[in-house]
Design a binder for these strands. Structure first.
Length: 308
DNA sequence: CGCATTTGACCCGCGC
DNA sequence: GCGCGGGTCAAATGCG
């Protein structure tokens, strides 16, 4: 696989972080740079600090690049190992993967090679869907949300608008499972299932199916003025696409208050939150890249194999 | 009154 | 073929 393409992406992230999401940062960008334009004396003073910051970011960028390169190497190693393994054990691989022949017959076999071992195995168990719904087969992700233990609702505030259309008590878990459809766009095919973890009742497990065919609502909100809404909302859906990879756990016992902050739009929060937003943006941009996700999964797997 | 949620009924695939 | 279980539908209900 060609690693260089997504490595370059990371370079962009660090050198010109605001370019990652052009729509979002305009306001910040304007504030930040226009301030410097108006007060040139202040600019001279701060230019030294900016240069220092630039150096620091460049160093960090270099470090990240090295990490990515290493991940890429690990990925290549693992991939060749996987290919070899699959060549030796084609039958086992097929039989152990899944019982559902309808999904086994889907032509995602090619993508498996790219996305690695991830999609088909553990995620398909969540997609016991009618075969005709194979348009949604593509993206299934699972996100763990930590909530207050006393919070008995199955509501996950991930920034999207969801309409609940069902609830079931499943056999393997005493807590009910709630079914949601994305209601932000009528044509959006995305569904999610939310259920409390069997192990830890304070953890909500949200399983997302499909891809949103519309922008994130809070991102739209951000472009129209407020920058705050996206910090939390954008994370779950983008940060964990691709699933049987290690799932993402988000601690919302604290973020509840920040949700409130979002609604109140407290100006005091703005400046300290900007770096956090940047981090979120970078993470979002990176994790949206399927190549990066695949490589990350492979690299982590490679590491684990290496350690074992 | 319109919209979202609830909840029982129904559908469908799978295992026996 | 039948029963089970997960997923979806749609009428009833609640709420602003």
């Amino acid at each position: 696989m060609d690693c260089s393409s997504w490595i370059n992406t990371s370079l962009d992230l660090n050198i010109n972080p605001y370019r990652v999401h052009e729509e979002f940062p305009k306001k910040v960008e304007n504030n930040f740079f226009s301030l410097g334009m108006r007060k040139s004396s202040v600019k001279e003073e701060s230019s030294g600090a900016l240069v220092e910051e630039l150096k620091r970011v460049s160093a960090e960028n270099k470090k990240l690049t090295e990490m990515l390169t290493e991940m890429c190497e690990n990925y290549n190693t693992l991939r060749s190992n996987l290919m070899e393994y699959m060549r030796k054990n084609p039958e086992k691989e097929l039989s152990s993967s899944k019982k559902r022949k309808s999904e086994g017959s889907n032509n995602n076999s090619n993508q498996m090679g790219v996305n690695g071992n991830s999609e088909s195995s553990s995620t398909d168990e969540e997609s016991c869907k009618k075969p005709r719904e194979d348009t949604i087969k593509a993206k299934i992700s699972r996100v763990h949300f930590r909530t207050e233990a006393s919070d008995t609702s199955l509501i996950v505030k991930d920034g999207y608008q969801w309409r609940k259309y069902g609830q079931k008590v499943t056999r393997d878990n005493p807590s009910p499972r709630a079914y949601f459809k994305c209601s932000f766009a009528p044509s959006c095919p995305v569904k999610k299932k939310v259920q409390r973890s069997v192990d830890d009742q304070s953890v909500l497990v949200a399983t997302y199916e499909g891809e949103h065919n519309h922008p994130h609502p809070s991102q739209m909100e951000a472009t129209s003025g407020s920058n705050h809404g996206m910090t939390i909302g954008s994370v779950p859906c983008s940060a964990s696409l691709n699933t049987s990879a290690p799932t993402v756990t988000l601690d919302w016992t604290k973020s509840k208050s920040s949700n409130d902050v979002v609604k109140k739009k407290d100006p005091k929060i703005e400046s300290p939150e900007v770096p956090q937003i940047l981090v979120e943006q970078m993470a979002t941009s990176l994790t949206k890249d399927p190549n990066f996700r695949a490589a990350l999964v492979a690299a982590i797997s490679g590491r684990m194999l290496h350690n074992n």
